[in-house]
Design a protein around this nucleic acid. Structure first.
Lengths: 190, 190
DNA sequence: TTCATATGATACAAAGATGCCTCATACGAT
DNA sequence: ATCGTATGAGGCATCTTTGTATCATATGAA
């Protein structure tokens, strides 16, 4: 009998499927189950054994994404630092993840639990925005929802520009933070 | 015989299809041809008479979008004004169009001509960015590609925030321009 | 009225995706 | 070595979508 600590007996197949699905659906959201199985190097039957249907797999992917993002953010954030510093660290931690999870932007997740967790992530960003405002880094008259939307978009835009080679990976996080806080005009205090 | 000026004899059906497809695919990009036909109030056969297949319809929609966007921008831009002013006017003109054409963001257009025209639109924005830099409204050290990407994203983000009621429609364009040029930090010169 | 054309309803075949099943096999734990 | 389990290959029935064709009808122009 296997240890109670590893609920999945042979995780290789499952992991291969998850990886293949992420890789494949990033380029083609309509890729079929057969293609995913082929790309994962497993039989289509095996895929159905692990994931009942498309939505099931998609939900699992979304939850993995959310979990990994939470971990990355938690590891990067230093709550004793200034809010601006936290913002910068968050950009650094999350932008590289865009590579793995950009496809979720086009997919629509039906699962309630997943969407709830996503909303919770946005809420946490909202809290950070509140701190940014309190700190004076963000103007109080700007709607918080607008700032949150900008942060969200900046992450994907930054990843996209890095992925297409138009912006250096090392610059992305700083560029994103600068864009949000100071805009792209000439800096008054260099 | 019909006038040579109107190549489409009875434009109502075609227009109804286009409208329905835009409306439907905005919410569900995977909506079927039958659904589009039903929603347009025409038979599925009629739909096939006007558009050979899905890609055909999608390409036409994309071209309509590009055309309308070009017209809106052309009508709004006053080339004798400052680049900053032109940017603001462009935001004003284009943000409301997001309502009609947001679904194109998730669709992938295979048609070469269409993608070429889209790239051309981005090039025009790039030119405007060049003028913004020359004018000193945008810092010279920021990659032009980054600025273009920001403008592109701002349009959709702005529309989305307006559509969801979190930001007033009247504020959107100004907020977008401010975000891009000055960021969301406290303004040094109020 | 008469005629051409667009349309709606319907049917049909082809293709693809999906979900489920079976069976022989390879692998790991014991 | 043995046993249990996951897997791969393949088959199969079903469902949906798609593209096409047919035919009767409505509409608009002459």
């Amino acid at each position: 009998m296997r240890s109670a600590l590893s609920p999945s007996p042979r995780p290789t197949a499952r992991d291969a499927i998850v990886d293949a699905a992420i890789r494949l659906w990033s380029r083609n959201p309509g890729a079929t189950f057969s293609e995913v199985a082929l790309n994962a190097g497993v039989g289509r039957a095996t895929l159905h054994r692990h994931f009942r249907n498309r939505d099931d797999l998609l939900t699992v992917l979304a939850e993995i994404c959310i979990e990994e993002t939470n971990e990355a953010v938690a590891a990067a954030i230093d709550r004793s630092a200034s809010a601006s510093r936290q913002l910068q660290r968050m950009f650094e931690a999350v932008i590289p993840l865009g590579d793995r999870y950009s496809f979720l932007y086009r997919a629509d997740i039906g699962d309630e639990h997943t969407t709830a967790e996503y909303r919770q992530q946005l809420d946490r960003v909202g809290t950070l925005v509140g701190e940014l405002k309190a700190e004076g880094a963000v103007a109080a008259d700007v709607p918080t929802a607008w700032v949150v939307a900008q942060i969200d978009q900046l992450i994907w835009t930054a990843w996209n520009e890095v992925a297409s080679g138009r912006v250096a990976a090392a610059d992305a996080a700083h560029l994103a933070a600068r864009t949000l806080l100071h805009g792209l005009g000439k800096e008054e205090q260099p």
